[in-house]
Amino acid sequence: MKMTKIVRTTADLFFPFCLVFGLYVVVHGHLTPGGGFQGGAVMATGTALLLVARAYDDVTGRIRKGAMKVCEAAGLLIFLCAGFSGLFAGRPFMANWLAPDGALFRTSIAHGPNAGDLNTAGLLPLLNVGVGIEVLGGLTVILLYMLSGIKEEKKK
């Protein structure tokens, strides 16, 4: 099913902004409200917008199910690798070893309100990005699968 041209154009226009805003929420997860799950859900909302406005075959040409499955598995893998990296640094599983003496995200902050610095929080930004990719892939795959089920129903 296709919506009118106005709706389709608006959805096309808003789709990249949805992705960018979701990415912003994911990357700033340790500074502002939000995080991996919320940002991933916002990015998946962009896909939902396209799915509402356009036909199923139209969307699958742009957003491939296989690529989204890879996204999902890669997100979980990033999360696991970041968790196990604590073992190689001589700390327990899931320990935040980057925060005090890692190479990246190592700036330490004192207790109290501050303006926020992106280069903080050790392992947390990596975990945020991993979970964000996983939620984006997972929700998009669920949406595409459910819509393919409806399409099959119509054909009979």
Binding site: H30, E72, G83, R106, A110, N114
Partner: peptide, 29 residues
């Protein structure tokens, strides 16, 4: 001081209760 994150909720979700979040990601998968 311990995690360097301004967002306390994120620091709990991913650091203090990181193992919990791993299970959550597995549930979604």
């Amino acid at each position: 001081a311990q995690t360097g994150a301004n967002n306390v909720v994120t620091s709990i979700v991913f650091d203090f209760r990181g193992f919990d979040t791993l299970g959550e990601a597995t549930v979604l998968f």
